[in-house]
Simulated scan of single mutants.
Amino acid sequence: MHIHELRLLATEPFARGEEYGRALAEQIRANTARYLWAFGELGVDAETVTRVAQESFEALDAWAPTQADELRGLAAGSGASLTDLAALTARTEVLAYAPNDALECSTLVRLAATGPSGVQTWDWHAELVPDTVLLSATVNDRQVRTFTETGMLGKIGAAGNLALFFNILSHESDARGRGVPVHAVARRILEEADTVEQALAIAESAPLSASTVLTVLEAPSAAKAEGDAASIELSPAGVALVRGEGGLLAHTNHFLHPALAAGDAASTQSTTDVRLAHLRSVAPGVAAARDAAELARAMCGDAGAAAPVCMRPADSPHLADRWETLITIAMVPGTGELHWQTGLPAGVTEGTLRVFGG
């Protein structure tokens, strides 16, 4: 997976999207084509993809018109179809219609008197993302930095006082109506929020048709000496806040809040329970971690590369079975930095970890 680092200069939404589109036009067009192919491979017919793309874009235009304008600019700059870009942006909403649920990703947050810090693995299909992007843009007079698929506007990222991690979830209420893309919710939180409470309010304001969890870290301040951190679970049935305990906040791919867990629809093939239990078991090592590299390694514990959070693709002809850990990202809120390395967290060292931002 090649990761492009792109720092946009334009500040007006359409122009910002157009600049992004011109810079990575070939990769964006190729990425939309791959995802359209993948939706079919994963069991979503073309008519459904188009309908969900159009409905999600209409919802986005009403809820976050600046993001809709940025996508219009992205289409103009890249030559990609706006409908195809809308389908890519709404890929979680499209995949809610797939018979096989998306499975993996693990997030771990260290809670300490000096403030929270966190790390996540992003596990996905390597053949879908030969190119991804670390994107930096000035939005609302603040610097937003995010890692995402090429042609999308946001996913994992940092801005202002916050850092945000992203894990997919599945709920029985998914795919039953029109909704704003959950990736757009993440981007708007990065654009506007400085506290967990503000992030929660943004999430609660969005009509949804798919589920995910956004784990938000808030830097220490005069109001909160230890900062703050919480997982915001999103579903069409509602939004709920999950707190950590014992110095640790961990989330994988099933709902934890009782109000939403009753409708959880995580795949029976997922290792989500095993990975969550593992993350909770490594609390002592996490507490002792002194920097981003140590935190990433602590995520694996004594098992190292054999830890269940280190995903490797199955030897299968079916795309739905071929998952692997493609990137490990660590962040400390308030720094605006994404510390990253392609591949497993077990292999991270201070010398191999790269920094985007600062």
Rank of each mutant, 00 (worst) to 15 (best):
A266H: 12
L111T: 00
T325R: 07
A303S: 15
R22I: 01
H278T: 03
H183C: 04
R178V: 10
L241R: 15
R142I: 13
M152I: 10
A259R: 14
A230S: 06
E12Q: 09
L214E: 13
T83L: 03
E41P: 03
D174C: 03
Q143W: 00
N167Y: 02
A193G: 09
L200W: 05
R16G: 00
G301T: 06
A298K: 03
H257S: 02
G343A: 07
A186P: 15
H257K: 00
A314W: 04
E47K: 06
T83V: 14
A98C: 04
I327L: 06
G227P: 06
M331I: 11
T212Q: 03
R187G: 02
S235V: 03
E12K: 01
A126D: 11
L6G: 01
R290I: 00
I202C: 08
H183F: 07
T342M: 13
S316E: 11
P258H: 01
R29P: 04
L95K: 07
V242D: 11
L164T: 02
G118A: 06
A113Y: 12
L276F: 13
A137Y: 04
L6E: 13
H183M: 14
G77C: 07
L353V: 12
H4K: 08
M299F: 06
L200R: 05
T89P: 13
K155P: 00
E41A: 09
P181L: 01
D69Y: 05
R178F: 05
G79I: 00
A30Q: 15
G154K: 04
P284W: 00
M311E: 15
H2W: 10
A90W: 12
